[in-house]
Nucleic acid binder design. Structure first.
Lengths: 189, 189
DNA sequence: ATCGCTTTTTGCCAAATGACAAATGATTTC
DNA sequence: GAAATCATTTGTCATTTGGCAAAAAGCGAT
C-alpha cells in the first residue's frame, strides 16, 4: 500500500486524510499466471496497480495470432482506460504473465475518489498521460528497426521483463517469430 | 476559427464569453512546405491547430536517418506536449509537409486560458489523451505486420495523407525502404 | 525417476526486404 | 523550355526473416 501511495505522490500532493481515504477504498487482488484481469468483449470494471509480477495487454489479429501489445511491470497502473472510462467493450485482454499481486479499485470507489478528493482528477490525468506517452515512446522506435535492434531496445525498455516472460510473448510484442528471436538471443551473447 | 471552436466543443462546453476569449488569443500562422513549427533541441513555444495542410513529427536516429514518427492532419492539435508543458528541450522536429495554415497560441496566452476558463484544463486533458491514444492505436499494429500490410493499414489510418506527402516520409514512418514501398504500391493496384 | 506437456532451439529452404546503382519522371529555377 | 535538382521507379543481388518440422530442453504431476 505504501508503494501505491508513494507512486501517487509523485504526481501531486495529498493530505493524510486523502491518503487514508484512498487506502480504505483499495483492495488487494492476487492473480495467478495466465489469469485475466480484464477481457476483450467485456467492460473493464477495475483500476489496478501492480505491486508484484508482470501483466500484459494482448489481442488476436485477423489471422488468429495472439499479439502482445505491451507489458505492464511492477509499480504501474493497469487499466483498460478507454473501456473503464467510457464503459465500452474492450478489444484486448489484460493478463497476468506471472503470479501477480495488485491493488485494485472498483469503478464505484474510483468515482468516489474523483468526487471527494480535490485534485484527484488532475493526478489521474497526469498518471494516464505519462503512461500513454511512455507507450508511444516505447512502440514508435521499434517499427523502424530490424529484429536484432528491436530486441536490444526491448532489453533497454523493459530491463526487468526479459527473463520472466515466455519468449513467444516477447516475439509477438516485437513483431518477429519465436524462432527468429531465439536465434537473435543466441547471437547476442 | 470556427473550425477550431467546433473542434474544442467536441470535448466540453464553453459559453460565448469563453469562446470569445479563446478567439482573441488565437493567431493565424502560415507555414510553407518544409518549414519547422518546432525544432529538436529547442523548447516548444506554441500550441497549434492545423486548419489546412499536413505536418509531421520526425527525428534522426543514430545512423543519421530521418524518421517520421507520425503525421498530423487537418483539425488536430500540433504541439510537442512534453516540451511545451515541462519546458524541456524537444528531441523531435515538427515540420510542415505541405503549405499549412495553423491557428496558434503562445505559451503565455495558453496559460492565461488555463487560468481563466474554468474547465479548460479538463478539455485540454481530454484532447491530449485522445491524441495520445490515437498515436498508440496507430503505431502498435504496425510492428507486427509485414511491409504490404503496414502500407494498407497506413492507407486506412491516414486516408487523406497518402497522396499528399513524399513517399520517403511514408516509408520511414512504416519502417521500410523507399524502394520497397514503391514496389508495394505498384503491386497493390 | 518417468511420463506428458509446453517452451525453446535448431535445420532447411523459401519468401520478403534491404542495399546500391542506374534510369525514369517530376518540379523548380533561370 | 532547357538545365538542374529532387523524387520515384526499377534492376540486380545479398541478407534477413519467416514457415515448417523435428529435436532438445524445461517443468510439473505422479
Amino acid at each position: 500500500m505504501k508503494e501505491l501511495i508513494n507512486y501517487i505522490l509523485q504526481f501531486g500532493s495529498l493530505n493524510q486524510q486523502q491518503i487514508d481515504l484512498i487506502s480504505r477504498k483499495a483492495t488487494e487482488l492476487e492473480l495467478h499466471k495466465d489469469d485475466y484481469f480484464s477481457e476483450a468483449g467485456k467492460i473493464a470494471r477495475q483500476v489496478g496497480f501492480v505491486i508484484e509480477g508482470i501483466t500484459r495487454v494482448c489481442y488476436y489479429n485477423n489471422k488468429g495470432e495472439e499479439i502482445t501489445k505491451y507489458f505492464i511491470e511492477e509499480h504501474n497502473l493497469v487499466v483498460d482506460f478507454e473501456s473503464f472510462n467510457d464503459e465500452i467493450c474492450s478489444s484486448a485482454y489484460v493478463q497476468a504473465v506471472t503470479d501477480c499481486k495488485l491493488i485494485v479499485f472498483s469503478k464505484k470507489d474510483w468515482q468516489e475518489l474523483l468526487d471527494t478528493i480535490v485534485g484527484w482528477d488532475k493526478i489521474v490525468h497526469k498518471i494516464i498521460s505519462k503512461a500513454l506517452m511512455q507507450k508511444v515512446a516505447r512502440r514508435s522506435p521499434l517499427v523502424t528497426e530490424d529484429a536484432t535492434e528491436r530486441y536490444l531496445k526491448f532489453l533497454e525498455i523493459y530491463p526487468t521483463v526479459a527473463n520472466r516472460v515466455p519468449l513467444s510473448y516477447i516475439a509477438s510484442y516485437l513483431g518477429i517469430t519465436q524462432s527468429s528471436l531465439s536465434r537473435i538471443r543466441k547471437n547476442i551473447r
